[in-house]
Design a protein around this nucleic acid. Structure first.
Lengths: 339, 339
DNA sequence: AAAGACAACGCAAACGTTTGCAATGTTAAA
DNA sequence: TTTAACATTGCAAACGTTTGCGTTGTCTTT
């Protein structure tokens, strides 16, 4: 009883051929209005739903988009996924989701499973350990629409969505300068990463614009809370030369800095300003709460989906790759001073 | 060239019928070993992959499991999704993911889309606004394997995975008692929710076990940081009667309590102990960091997947519904005292 | 009135599998 | 040597669609 009605059933009931039913349901002009309406009404009444497998088999493509995330639990990626899901849902696509757990092998396996599932597009962010891109290259060779976000692959000609790291960092650092900071330290993740470079450039250019010295000792590779705490305590002992502002690559690091400052008896933001990249729950949970650069993960996800749809739908545009840069915004909270 | 090879292609190449190829690849005993091996070798060499659509069409079921989340961005749900993804991947299933955004209408639409996609099972957690369960009831009526997690539906006969709220709360409160607390307040989400009731019971029973008074003024409905802060400030003014311990329904609330205590000049944990339910980033970001009950979201996800697979695979077991209760664990950090 | 045009519909193949059954060929038993 | 049994393979239908092409039938045109 629950078994779904098919086009053949309708054809039998209406005394016509399946092809007629198909055309009627697809509003083909070759079907007389009377018949068409009768068929459509019957289909409606009997809650006809086309069988997706049959459609997929015939069109050789599913109605599905594959999404690869390095880690689902990570707030930024969860946000991106949320944005993708929303956009996909609006466009009538399903998404199948898989996480690489930052493992290259898993990433390769995922790509393979997506090919098997014949998804009609892939949205991906690279695992940290991925240096070989041949699995993605195969997708590109097969003309599978592919969009990278955040951790993009610069070797491949695909659309990309990235966060405006440079401008975000620039704005944050400039805000600290304008509100009185003169010696701003920068805690960064490894500088071979694209995002680190861009954020560093933003930091440096903001200093230069305001004619502040760019001092190499102020730029340190440090992106965990524990390390940040230690490092900060050391830097604050510099007494006269101590930083009066910190710009951190992520919220955890910023939190470590914050607590080190408080331990050192410094007031935040009166004595020291702190600002970080990548807003998340952590930044909203300290006291004072941390001023942060918001990456707008959901916008990234939505942008990726839009680019992907453009490639899926577009015909001649299929070969044109576009980049989208999602603007960040500076969320001012208690760890920086007001103007 | 990239177009995949089919069974027919192999048949043509080997000079036999497609059915023979099919049987050979499926290791049917009716095929002579020589032919079978030749075919398998050919298939292997030509990287044959069965067409999933054709399989799905024939079997009338996809190789996919639908997952419904209230909010992907929420840490607990992201953790659950991560667990589901891992388990599904190991079992060879794809997952399609959709979020209800706590909206009833969206949830209904998702269920419908899952039916269209003919997923072979559904894992779901209810949206807050869902009081009518007919969309899920339809799934059950159609014998679609269905498992609820966390926000379960008690009206329907399905497998369920829940967190052991009672024991988790009991353990947390008992720990505070054992380490010296005598007046413990409980900040809870609305008590009509199942989880609230269970946690309250754990709280009450722990007090009773240790012959402490259960005082109604100590149980307050409050589950946001801002409200918690206000409320705590008020309670701490009770001077002699002030609480010396707080148990909060979530991390945000616990953070609000923490900062109110510090504002009041009380030391945590020396003067006041604080413990919360649902560990997440927030709890790891305060100073001191918050002792929390960890819900083991990934275990919840994995458990849900296991129950679902049991229903999908099991034959006579298909109608047996099982419950799984995931044990919590108490993570002791700086907001409670040691024994 | 005959022929052409056109509207409306049906036939059948195709997408890639699986599987019940029939059709071979081979071997063993009588 | 005949027959039965069995191993091996092929045929064809089925899953639910879509679509090119052929077939009707009606209407307009000359």
């Amino acid at each position: 009883m629950s078994s779904h009605i098919t086009i053949k059933d309708i054809a039998k009931a209406m005394g016509c051929a399946p092809s007629t039913v198909s055309r009627a349901l697809n509003n083909s002009p070759n079907i007389s209005p009377a018949v068409r309406e009768a068929i459509q009404r019957y289909a409606m009444e009997h809650n006809y739903r086309p069988n997706e497998f049959a459609l997929s088999l015939r069109n050789n493509r599913s109605n599905t988009i594959g999404v690869i995330l390095p880690q689902i639990k990570h707030y930024f990626f969860a946000s991106v996924l949320s944005g993708i899901e929303r956009a996909a849902s609006e466009a009538g696509y399903n998404i199948i989701v898989a996480q690489s757990n930052e493992e290259y092998d898993k990433e390769v396996a995922i790509v393979e499973s997506f090919r098997k599932a014949k998804v009609c597009g892939v949205i991906a962010s690279l695992a940290k350990g991925t240096y070989d891109y041949s699995h993605f290259r195969r997708l590109v060779d097969e003309e599978m629409p592919l969009v990278f976000y955040d951790r993009i692959c610069t070797e491949l000609n695909t659309s990309r969505v990235v966060v405006d790291d440079y401008t975000g960092a620039f704005a944050a650092v400039e805000h600290m300068i304008v509100t009185g900071c003169r010696r701003i330290a920068f805690f960064t993740s490894p500088l071979h990463l694209e995002i680190s470079k861009n954020r560093r450039n933003g930091y440096v250019d903001a200093l230069r614009k305001h004619r502040l010295e760019v001092c190499n000792e102020m730029i340190v590779e440090c992106d965990t809370r524990v390390a940040a705490r230690e490092l900060t305590l050391g830097m604050l002992k510099l007494d006269k030369e101590r930083p009066d502002g910190f710009f951190a690559v992520n919220a955890d690091t910023a939190a470590g800095i914050l607590y080190a400052c408080k331990d050192s008896g410094l007031r935040v933001p009166e004595d020291v300003s702190i600002c970080g990249f990548s807003d998340n729950e952590t930044a909203r949970s300290t006291e004072p709460r941390l001023s942060m650069v918001d990456q707008h993960g959901e916008a990234v996800g939505q942008g990726a989906m839009e680019l992907l749809l453009a490639k899926i739908d577009g015909d001649e545009e299929k070969l044109v790759y576009k980049n989208k840069i999602v603007k960040t915004s500076l969320i001012l909270r208690g760890s920086t001073r007001d103007k």
